[in-house]
């Protein structure tokens, strides 16, 4: 009885162990993963010709205080749809950015940034819940150790950005 139980226990553990073994991807540092998401957001976004001419670089902006800044810097010189990424430390003006990554350190200046960005073709990506809920185009979050994102279509429309249907399909929610 006892040994049979032990065998069953062993079998169960072995089963789960075996399921663990195959080469699924290894866990990734959260900030590196978020930077990879930002890269993909750029891949699946279309900017109007007048702000992103063929071959022109994509300006990816974030404040140096943003914990993602280091990970985002690794995207420098990578190429997206024929455009080289140029990572910039956000000073002013933010209207020159194509992608602007925000975090909780930007909360206080967000109201002012929003005014500045009105009508500009900037893909705002927020890693802060309150900014995500307050007009950023894309909001990032972590759920059960995975990164998820939500898209605010009203914000995308007012920035006159064309987000691909694939991006919208992969979003947790589109509003």
């Amino acid at each position: 009885m006892r040994s049979e139980r032990a065998r069953r226990l062993g079998a169960l553990a072995a089963l789960l162990g075996a399921l663990c073994a195959p080469g699924a991807a290894q866990p990734v540092q959260e900030n590196d993963m978020k930077a990879a998401y930002v890269f993909n957001f750029a891949v699946f976004t279309e900017w109007p010709q007048e702000v992103l001419a063929g071959g022109a670089p994509i300006s990816l902006c974030a404040s140096a205080a943003n914990p993602l800044f280091h990970a985002l810097s690794q995207l420098n010189d990578k190429v997206v749809n024929g455009h080289r990424i140029a990572v910039r430390n956000t000073v002013t003006p933010v209207r020159g950015c194509h992608v602007l990554v925000l975090d909780k350190n930007d909360r206080e200046r967000w109201a002012q940034l929003k005014r500045e960005l009105a009508g500009a073709h900037v893909l705002t990506v927020s890693d802060d819940l309150s900014i995500s809920a307050d007009g950023a185009v894309i909001g990032l979050s972590v759920d059960e150790r995975r990164i998820a994102f939500v898209v605010d279509m009203a914000a995308a429309r007012s920035a006159r950005l064309n987000l691909s249907s694939k991006l919208l399909r992969l979003a947790r929610s589109v509003q």
Binding site: A25, Q26, V28, E30, A35, F39, V142, R146
Partner: peptide, 26 residues
């Protein structure tokens, strides 16, 4: 131990796959 292997280039991974990958916090 095997999980300590060298980091991969995440920009080369399809976006669908990134969504399923686990992260750990710094």
């Amino acid at each position: 131990a095997p999980a300590m292997a060298a980091p991969q280039d995440l920009t080369a991974v399809p976006f669908e796959q990134l969504l399923t990958m686990e992260v750990y916090s710094a």
